[in-house]
Every structure is written in structure tokens, then in C-alpha cells.
Write a protein that binds this DNA or RNA. Sequence first.
DNA 1: TCTGGGGTCCTAGGACCC
DNA 2: TCTGGGGTCCTAGGACCC
Length: 436
Amino acid sequence: MYDYRYEPHHVIFMIDNKSFFASCEALALGLNPMRAVLAVVSHRPNLNYGSGLIMAASPLAKKKYGLTNVMRVRDLPSKKVAPDLILVEPHMNLYIKRSMQILDIFRKYAADEDIHVYSIDESMVDMTKSWQLFGDDPYLVARKIQVEIKNSLGLYTTCGIGENPLLAKLAMDISAKHRYSMIDYWHYIDVPDTIWKIYNLEDVWGIGKKTAQHLQRMGIKNMYDLAHTNPTILTNEFGIIGAQLFATSWGVDRSIISEKSPPESPSYGNSQILNYDYTIQREIEIVLREIVEQVAARLRAYNFQAKCLSLYVGFSRSYHGKSKGFNVQQKITPTNDDQFLNCALINLFRKNWHGEPVRLLSVSCSHLTSANYEQMTFLLTPSQQIKKSMINKTIDSIHQKYGFTSLVKASSLLHGATAIKRSNLVGGHNGGDLYE
DNA sequence: TCTGGGGTCCTAGGACCC
DNA sequence: TCTGGGGTCCTAGGACCC
């Protein structure tokens, strides 16, 4: 048995919102999230109804009609089969608002540095130092938080508790989600009865399809097998990931939430799947420009410049050439300027594209530096450069105040452009209003 | 699945330098 | 000569997460 004495013995809560998007929608309609039969459907502008995507489904919609996320509208049961199924459009801005309201509730229970927001509907809270202030047992404190969120916002939450973030996350994913109490608490001592009982490797955080297949080829079929494999073999096979897999199988995770480090390689990017196959260079380049301007505006909003620009171009599935697309990147002089970024991007595109039909475009900026200073260039005088930067900022503030469509490039009116149609999207889905 | 969108981290190989 | 050896940076690609 592993000696856990020197591992962190914290009290970590991993709190996740049950069917978050669907629940927000149910509540907006005055329904109980657990009793509503509802799905959130994201449609892309100008595309036929059937291709709509199920972004989220309420627990009952999943249970009653077998709905799953990322299902298509065309695969939904008919009105006859499912007369009570409610379909609604997403309202991303509402979800963001609710997410922030929940965060405010966590702040009553722990210090800011002990809270880590993992995604829009999942957070980790290190309650080690504060849980005793709120109850006699971590279970009861978790219940208290659940009740507070339910009473103030109507939302149901699931809570995994563990001695480290990994145990908390696994307790949530594997167990708490399926329990009536929606809480479970995993300790190191429970590892043989919890982690080792996980039969399906893919259920485990950090193990996806490819890694599961790879492990299976090595004769490792479940978490018990993984925990009883020689770690040297795993390291030889997977490198660092192998050591991590082994640690996971024993419930070991030494990360401390208050010591969390900023990401090593932060980036900002936007992508879109086009509504049809693009083959005309000019049309592709219009969309590329719209995307890179969106990315550049985000860089400016967070006061960053980028040193690296990446482009991914995905080809149509109807194209059966050697490759499915190309991914290229280039180091650039730090900038957040629309024109510079667009020039570099178009160069990258023209160098690598040879007329294949295009369906997906993705632009991303990384190796970020602060925008508090500016690299002089040989191409422009300093005063020209300052002027450019002021124009960018002015356009940004007009967009912020009056909306994106209040000021657009004429090219966005040409055939193939997408920015205007997508201007109300948040993260690729309808932003919507807040109802309130 | 005839196509959602936004992220992070790891690895391998080549270029280049001393 | 059976072609040094170590380090860093860069790019492409893969895997995972929500």
C-alpha cells in the first residue's frame, strides 16, 4: 500500500452544476430544472434546422428520450414520440451571469485564492482552512452550499469532496453525480474501493479515447490494472504522462489551489466551421480577416500583444486529398494590431493553401506579452504607429458601446463574409439577452 | 455525426549555436 | 573515423478538457 502520510490532506470541494445550460433555461421558463424535459439547441445562422446541435439536455430529457450532448436536431425523437420535449435557443450571456453569481456564493465560504474556476459550470474550492466555520462535517458544509445555491438561484449542484483536487474531481464525476445526495467524499484510504473499481478507463479525468486504447493494447483494462503496472513501463511508453497516469491510479495529486500557477502557454483564438465549402481565395481571406480582427480586439481588451500567430485550415470532408488540413504558425514582432496580424495571417495562408475546399478556419495568438510597451518597426514612424493604435482602440470602444454591427468593414458585406451574422454569438452560440 | 467553439499541455524533430 | 555533444528555440502535430 502506498504511504499517503506525506501527501496533502486538504478538504477540496469540486462543485459542478447539474445540466447547467438546460437548468438556466428551465428556470427562465419558470420550470424546475429536474422536472423539465428540455434541450438547448444551437443553430448556426442560415443553416437548415436539422443540423442544429444539442448543447445541453435536462436530466429528464436524457433519461426519457435518450438525448445526449452534441446530438443533432435531425436525430431527435419526433413531436409525436416526445410531445413534452421543449427546445430552446442558448443564451450564453445568461449562463455567464449565473456562473458569476455562483462564484459570489463560493466567496462567502472561502478566500479568493482558495477558489479555482475550472469552467463555466465547475469550480474547485479549497475548504481546508474554512470548512469548520460552517458546520461539523464537510458533508454538511457541502449540503449548506448546495442549499444556498438552490434557494437563491434555483440551480442544483453536485459536490465531490476529496483530500486533493484529483480525488474531489473523481468523487464528483464518478460518484456524486449519480447519488441522490449529489455529494460524495473520497479519501486516500478509499482508493482501492473507489478509483480501483473504475472499470472504464475513459471515465477518468485525463484519460481519453486514444490513451485508453493505448493502455488496452498494453493489457491494462481498468484502473486496478493501471495501479498495478510497473511505473517504469508506463514512463517508457508515455513519458511524463505515464507517471501522471500512475499517480492518478493511486489518487495522488500534489497541487495546492492557492499556489496555482498561471498557464505556461496562454493563448487567444477564434475559429469557425463555415456554412459551406469555400473555394474562392478572396472569400476565405475575408473570413480570415474577420476572425483575426476578433482575436486582435480580445488581445487589446486584455492589454496583450502576441509574439506568435497560428492558423489552422481544415478542408472539406468531401475533399479526399492527402491531408485533412494544415496547421501552421509563425513568430511575429509583438503586436495586437489588426493590419499587422492580418498581413502575417494572409501570408501564412497563401504560402500553404493550394486551392483545397475549406470548411474550418481557426486563428490563434500565443506567446503573449504585455502591451504596455510597443516594439518599434522599420515600416512605420513612431507617430504613425501611435495613430494606428489609437484607431484600433477607438473602433474597439465603439464596438463595445454600440455593438459590433454599428461599425464594420465594407468587406463584411461581401458574399462569404460571416462576421455580421455571427456578431451576436458568444463562444459560437447565441448570446441572447438576460431576461432581466 | 457532413461538421460547435475555446482552451492547455506534451513530444519530436530540425535549425542553429558554441 | 563507424562523422562530438549539449543546449535553446522553433514548428507541427497529437491528446485532453469543458
